[in-house]
Amino acid sequence: PQVLELERWVVAHGGALPKQSAARRSSPDAAAEGRLARFLLRQQQALRAGALPAERRRRLLMVPGMQERFAQWQSTAPAQSDFECWVNALKDWALGHGRLPKYGEGDATERRLAEWLNHQRAHVDDASDEGRRKLALLECAAIPGFPKLLKGWLKKRVDFDDRVAELAEWVYARGGRLPRIRAGDDAERGLDGFVRKQQTLSFRGQLSAQRRARLA
């Protein structure tokens, strides 16, 4: 949905892509531009981390101006953006500190590695050969703390699939009606919360194509 919003915005503005500087202006259009500029920044970060899903990349490249923007991102990407270099850097850091880097904590190096590692969770949901290859590289690297982290990622994936199945069964039993937040039933409120969370992730561009397909 956010890629579609981006595409519509670009077309409406004569092919110009949104800019981060829009945040300094005060208007409804500036707010939308700032939000879309932040969305693009997250896609750039995912690309550098080797965690931009192929389907999202394909869809982004259909937006006017994005082929040139991708070329710019790739030409300015640091050498360390190579996936195996990131894996090695993560392993060296984890061996030196006896733990994995924590998101949003520590010095610039720890924060950068933690952000990259956070992006790799997308490979758990990625059914592509490339996604499986990257996850296998991480698994084989003997990074301290990673097996436990991966176990948590896999459990959350199972929880997601179970929740989707529960939602599908609930909706089917009620003739296609989605759960409501003001329902008196705890189970219905819980399912509504699950749906709203997926909506939020989708709006932020953080819902993988595989999960979106499961929810469709």
Results as ranks from 00 to 15, higher is better:
R25H: 11
G131I: 04
V195Q: 03
L135D: 04
A216T: 14
P64A: 04
E55C: 05
L117H: 07
H119Q: 13
F83Q: 15
A54P: 00
G104Q: 10
K155L: 15
P1R: 15
V63R: 02
P179M: 06
R163Y: 06
A37N: 05
A122G: 06
A122N: 11
R35L: 04
V195K: 03
E68N: 03
R211E: 08
V11L: 09
M62F: 05
Q210N: 10
D125A: 02
R204A: 04
D159W: 10
P1S: 11
G106D: 09
A216G: 11
R177E: 15
S128A: 06
D161I: 12
V10K: 04
Q67I: 04
Q206R: 14
R48S: 01
P179L: 05
L17C: 09
W153P: 01
G65V: 10
R35A: 06
F146S: 01
P144M: 09
Q74K: 15
A183C: 03
S208I: 05
P78M: 12
E7D: 12
L100P: 02
E115H: 10
F39C: 02
K148R: 13
V124N: 02
D159C: 07
E84F: 10
K148P: 00
A54S: 10
E110G: 00
A187P: 00
R157N: 06
K151M: 05
K102I: 03
D29E: 14
H123E: 08
I143N: 01
K134R: 15
G65F: 11
V171L: 11
K156C: 02
